[in-house]
């Protein structure tokens, strides 16, 4: 057993840890934005808006993340010249961009499902009351619907954030050196297989439960009026 491998490579592991955190943060923030748009489109009464949003959600929820990553990362190479012509190739060329792109869309699809459900469950009478006092749709959303929907959606959404943090480990397969990617490289140099995997498993546990702790504090805050 050679646990010293972990200390010897601590700096490198820390780098990977940062990449994991950054990936999660970018995917979640971009994904949140896309998810809200998808939810509003899904809730629209117009089929023309609803249908594309539902198709995107269905695709990203119905296929494995690994397939989506490979489809974008390796698949974009098949359309290199087309992407080059519209100036997008320099983005898709980077593995990191492909990773954020896919993770953001993936989490957006799952989150929008959560948000749609939450918005639907806001009391209809309140919306009618809001309309009756002359609120515009925008104000209605900002003042009445979204604050309540956020509270309803929070448990589900915070779980989704933890899911996507763990899912970032897959980007190591498309050459991004996140925590898992760095672990793979260390193993191929030192052959300390279980030492390294156990160490990063513990690191992921720490990240997960730190997030769980923070999210439950937020949940308490969101529900403080109920106590």
């Amino acid at each position: 057993m050679s646990w010293h491998v972990i200390w010897d490579n601590a700096a490198w592991l820390l780098e990977g840890f940062w990449v994991t955190i950054q990936l999660t943060a970018s995917a979640v923030s971009i994904g949140l934005f896309i998810a809200l748009i998808l939810s509003l489109l899904t809730l629209s009464t117009h089929r023309f808006y609803r249908w594309p949003a539902e198709a995107i959600t269905f695709f990203f929820r119905g296929t494995p993340l690994l397939v989506q990553l490979f489809l974008v990362y390796h698949g974009s190479g098949q359309f290199r010249h087309e992407l080059d012509a519209i100036g997008l190739w320099s983005y898709f060329r980077e593995a990191y961009f492909c990773a954020v792109f896919v993770l953001a869309l993936n989490t957006a699809a799952y989150s929008s499902e959560i948000f749609t459900g939450a918005i639907r469950s806001v009391d209809k009478n309140q919306i009618e009351a809001g309309r009756a006092v002359g609120m515009t749709s925008f104000i209605l959303y900002r003042r009445i619907i979204l604050p309540q929907a956020l509270r309803i959606a929070w448990t589900g959404y915070s779980n989704e954030i933890i899911f996507i943090m763990q899912a970032t480990s897959l980007v190591s397969i498309i050459t991004v050196l996140d925590l898992t990617g760095v672990a793979g490289r260390i193993i191929s140099k030192t052959f300390a297989i279980y030492e390294v995997y156990i160490a990063i498993a513990l690191l992921y546990l720490v990240i997960t439960y730190t997030m769980v702790f923070i999210f439950s504090r937020i949940e308490k805050r969101l529900n403080r009026h109920k106590a």
Partner: peptide, 18 residues
């Protein structure tokens, strides 16, 4: 230097211009 898990993946990314 970009290191790939397999030679085939390296070939694929070379052809893709990455």
């Amino acid at each position: 230097i970009k290191a790939y898990k397999s030679q085939e993946e390296a070939n694929l990314d070379f052809l893709a211009g990455r």
